[in-house]
């Protein structure tokens, strides 16, 4: 089958790429568009390391076809910081040691940002269930939950 031409919006900018019909959005992001922030941890939607936002909805980009990005708004970790200014979640993750190896961090940041946009004042339990699809093997999640709460408080105050 022939490759497909896709026009999409990536972190607010127009973007175009060509991909195979069976190619995942994750592979298109990483191999066609040069954005390697989304990671493949499993390829089956179990680990959440490839989490991106598609039209405001969180998706595992390993379970979405590249072709489905046609006309969509895609947001990745690379779009979180504005110029030199880190997003409050990014800053809180650094300041409060919410990452160790960092491989799950892009997916968790994208997922947490989406949560705080829907619910600016979540409980710990709400954060834990919201992030239950994002595996972290290093931290035991404790500092991640705390950093999300600190960023949420910061954003409510801002």
């Amino acid at each position: 089958m022939k490759n497909i031409h896709v026009s999409t919006t990536l972190n607010g900018d127009d973007a175009e790429f060509v991909c195979a019909p069976e190619e995942t959005l994750l592979d298109a992001l990483r191999n066609r568009l040069g954005l390697s922030g989304a990671k493949e941890g499993c390829g089956t939607g179990d680990c959440g390391a490839c989490t991106v936002e598609m039209d405001g909805r969180l998706v595992c980009s390993c379970l979405v076809l590249g072709a489905e990005a046609q006309g969509a708004q895609i947001k990745t970790v690379e779009g979180m910081a504005i110029g030199e200014a880190l997003h409050p979640l990014q800053q809180a993750f650094i300041d409060h040691a919410a990452l160790q190896c960092g491989i799950c961090t892009p997916g968790i940041l994208v997922a947490a940002k989406n949560l705080l946009e829907r619910n600016p004042d979540p409980t710990d339990t709400e954060i834990r269930y919201w992030l239950a699809g994002n595996l972290c093997r290093c931290t035991g999640y404790d500092k991640i939950i705390k950093a999300v709460q600190i960023a949420a408080a910061d954003m409510r105050g801002a």
């Binding site: 339990t125 992030l131 239950a132 595996l135 404790d142 939950i145």
Partner: peptide, 16 residues
Amino acid sequence: GFLDYRIPVASDLPNI
């Protein structure tokens, strides 16, 4: 796979 080999997820754990 991570579906059937189940490592702890955030909602499984308390603060440590």
